[in-house]
């Protein structure tokens, strides 16, 4: 006569067969939880609100004379700096001599 343990095991096996669930008496990891979990990527991508660049708006609605105040401020500042002789230095025409590696390498 079969012991109670084996009987219970048989019962679970039958249950699994009936309800189409996987029979896993040793509780071995099958990796199913990684497949069952919902995908997180689509929600992750939606985190930052989409911003439309003002250049694009200006290009589309060119007749509306939309002012890009930040860009204008920047250009004004550059002119101001140049007046005071504090502008960016002019680019060298000759190629600078190579000095070993440039920068910190490629970033992925």
């Amino acid at each position: 006569m079969a012991s109670l343990k084996t009987k219970l095991q048989q019962l679970t096996k039958l249950q699994c067969a009936l309800f189409e669930t996987s029979y896993n008496p040793t509780s071995a990891r099958t990796g199913a939880k990684y497949l069952r979990a919902r995908l997180r990527g689509p929600a992750m991508v939606r985190y930052y609100p989409q911003r439309i660049p003002i250049q694009l708006v200006r290009a589309v609605a060119w007749d509306m004379n939309i002012v890009d105040s930040r860009e204008e401020q920047r250009v004004d500042d550059v002119v101001d700096l140049k007046k005071r002789g504090k502008g960016a230095p002019k680019k060298k025409k000759e190629k600078a001599e190579e000095k070993g590696k440039k920068g910190g390498g490629k970033k992925k």
Binding site: A28, R29, T30, G31, A32, Y34, L35, A37, L39
Partner: peptide, 12 residues
């Protein structure tokens, strides 16, 4: 990635 993860963690 999930597919590989499931394979890597599958003890069977």
């Amino acid at each position: 990635r999930r597919a590989y993860l499931a394979c890597a963690r599958n003890q069977t």
